[in-house]
């Protein structure tokens, strides 16, 4: 058993010809922290369900921890820990009971299960609330308990599907700290999905951006930022004619310029440094935008960028 993930050209088509995953391939090395970054409906959760034996792919090859997911689902389940987007907690059981229950199902004796539950409660800071019904926990506490349940059998690979969505900053940081520690200190391979660029940036060794069921870019955070890290200067005009003139005025080989109706968008590596230049050019032609905004690269811009390039057919895998 090892902590690797090997995915070759998987596809998942649901009833009604809904193609959730369309030919995704990637490899994750033992001990690597890998993130899937994408918007809602990109196919992130479906990929996690395919990798964790909950769904069967329409086609393609899946290997997790060295086992074929289709042929050896039991062995895969023993090697992985999975925290799905929706926490899996029975509200009628207490925190401690849930952890002991989970441990028993992973083959721990009663005594071992008790001990393991105690350790995990401490780890996620729920010792004081261990004997309260989990249904009475706050959202953040439920997330922490869910993570603890995922860790019961010390899995070699951890799948985390949007583990911090809907959490307040304090709880988010607590979850980040713990998964970072698992990766760095225990060498656990981590497969994380997120909608937040910041989260992937902070945590992952390598990121794949997924959109509409396909991987559109892969690289380290630094690499992705180099290719995608543009500031966007957005100029909004009252009249389309003005926008057309402005587009002609500011267009340059040094950066990318786009016009959609009354809006002109400039994507530049360092937006603030060319801002003065842009304003001077507009002034020369007596063009006055109704609004001017400079935004750091957002996930949206990354997607606009990547999907544009995808259309033009000029993108590496």
């Amino acid at each position: 058993m090892n902590g690797t993930i090997h995915v070759e050209n998987i596809e998942k088509t649901f009833k009604g010809d809904v193609k959730a995953v369309r030919g995704v391939s990637f490899n994750v090395a033992d001990g690597e922290f890998f993130a899937f970054l994408g918007p809602n409906g990109a196919g992130k959760s479906t990929t996690v369900q395919l990798l964790t034996t909950l769904l069967k792919p329409t086609s393609g090859k899946l290997e997790v921890a060295g086992y074929d997911v289709n042929k050896d689902p039991e062995k895969v389940r023993l090697s992985i820990g999975v925290a799905l987007q929706e926490t899996g907690i029975d509200p009628d059981l207490k925190g401690r009971e849930l952890l002991e229950f989970q441990a028993r199902l992973f083959g721990f004796s009663k005594k071992e299960a008790k001990k393991r539950a105690e350790e995990l409660l401490e780890l996620v800071g729920l010792t004081e609330d261990a004997d309260r019904l989990s249904g009475k926990y706050s959202g953040g506490m439920r997330r922490r308990l869910d993570l603890a349940m995922t860790l019961v059998h010390q899995p070699k690979i951890l799948f985390l599907d949007e583990p911090t969505t809907g959490l307040d900053p304090a709880n988010r940081k607590a979850i980040w700290r713990e998964i970072k520690r698992l990766n760095k200190e225990e060498g656990t391979t981590i497969f994380l999905t997120t909608q937040y660029l910041e989260e992937a940036d902070q945590l992952a060794d390598r990121i794949s951006i997924i959109n509409k069921g396909q991987i559109v870019a892969t690289g380290t955070p630094a690499e992705l930022k180099r290719t995608l890290g543009f500031d966007a200067i957005v100029l909004q005009f009252d009249e389309e004619d003005e926008a057309i003139s402005a587009y002609e005025a500011v267009a340059s080989d040094e950066y990318q310029t786009e016009r959609v109706k009354n809006d002109v968008t400039i994507l530049a590596e360092n937006g603030t440094s060319i801002l003065a230049d842009v304003i001077r050019k507009l002034d020369e032609r007596n063009l006055h935008p109704a609004q001017l905004n400079v935004k750091p690269p957002s996930l949206d811009d990354v997607f606009i960028q990547v999907t544009n390039e995808q259309k033009e057919g000029g993108l590496n895998e």
């Binding site: 964790t52 034996t53 909950l54 039991e74 389940r77 023993l78 992985i80 999975v82 799905l84 929706e86 926490t87 899996g88 907690i89 029975d90 509200p91 989970q102 199902l105 992973f106 083959g107 349940m149």
Partner: peptide, 16 residues
């Protein structure tokens, strides 16, 4: 109820 609160998926992810 187990299906609704996601607990059933967690059960399916155990080796039982």
């Amino acid at each position: 109820k187990d299906l609704d609160n996601g607990f059933f998926s967690r059960l399916l992810l155990t080796p039982s």
